[in-house]
Design a protein around this nucleic acid. Sequence first.
DNA 1: CTAGAAAATATTATATACAAAAAACGGTGC
DNA 2: GCACCGTTTTTTGTATATAATATTTTCTAG
Lengths: 223, 223
Amino acid sequence: MSITNRPIRPQLGDEAASFLRDQITSGTLAAGAPVRPETVADELGISTTPAREALQALRAEGFLDLAPRKGFTVAKVTGDDVRDMFLVQSMVAGELAARAATNASAELIAVLDKIHADLMAAETRGDLAALEELNHAFHREINLAANAPRLAWVIKLVSRYAPRRFYASIPGWPETTVHDHTDLLQAIRSGDTESARREMSDHVRHAGDQLAAHIDERIASQS
Amino acid sequence: MSITNRPIRPQLGDEAASFLRDQITSGTLAAGAPVRPETVADELGISTTPAREALQALRAEGFLDLAPRKGFTVAKVTGDDVRDMFLVQSMVAGELAARAATNASAELIAVLDKIHADLMAAETRGDLAALEELNHAFHREINLAANAPRLAWVIKLVSRYAPRRFYASIPGWPETTVHDHTDLLQAIRSGDTESARREMSDHVRHAGDQLAAHIDERIASQS
DNA sequence: CTAGAAAATATTATATACAAAAAACGGTGC
DNA sequence: GCACCGTTTTTTGTATATAATATTTTCTAG
């Protein structure tokens, strides 16, 4: 076992991909805008090779289009697109919650209880950053408990369509999150598979609808 | 408009990715095996640049793992993994079929009828290649009619986990396909949204179970 | 003056060489 | 056996060259 356990430096391509993904989901990079490897490389102070790798990864994730011999452009992401991505997420997350409910160990319940208590505390004191962090931890715990790495992978993929720090920007999100998580946790605790699926599915889809509406609004104001 | 309309040659990276994907899904490349950019480049007679891009793309698709500073390895794809990927496919394809059923035009029905007739003909004369082609066309038509590009994109992504020419290798597949498609087409024709969803979902999941069993068997025989 | 051809330019995709840093390997001594 | 140390690969990132293709500009004919 290593003593230092120092964090491995993320690879440049991954950092660049993450950076550009934020720009796209936040709307800073407009749909259809060309994205040139060299420009990206220059802006981020890296070489073209990792920049190009980042663009390829973003293409595989559906954020960029590539016309052969013409280059990359920012893909159009409409409200309906986001709604559909969240629909997928809701279906898969529902399945994961159902599986977590079937094999819910006492340890899992304890961990979720702890996170949920912290989340409620963060809600009462209005700490949005902590809230978002704890929300993420709650969902991750369930997704891991389901023991289905490929489904978790799909979730990770489609959930990238939500911009960073998005949830905190929804009015009333803290209250509904606490409420939804309470019901979901109860379903998991009692091993109620189908309730867990439904609670999770509705919870995710609801968030997706909010984001989609927000994006529809943004696109409308730009036209 | 161009006169020649010659097909654009796919980019080297895409060709390499496709080639390696086949190797992985068919089991030719064993799980855990290292995949070096230079080796791939040499074998395919291309340069390291597109080879590297191919590996990155396959990583984004979940076929390769990348350990930082250690390189790419073939991801382990178990029967359960495939079952889960097909579960996602079944859910999304079900949604697409449901949408296709709601806005089923006369043209769509006509096209599907034609494809289905050809498919039955191919079945009676035992033409597996045509059968697989027509099966694909049938599903694609439904997916396009649903008018949900992002859902179609998810389908494309997860359906890559089925090896090429897999369906034809299942005993009894031609008959069940004709049977399932008949019911599905009937549901779409009558605009029965939920029947269409269920038929499609069951149809896809059934195929996934077959493939998963096949993979379980392959893995068991290798250990 | 305008349409279209031809030339000039830009950009993409690919190839190749190379350097720094990390990891794997292999032998040596204990 | 096993820890240590130097060598050799391998990964990662950089820089640059070249062929093919797109785009833009220029030029010319009508």
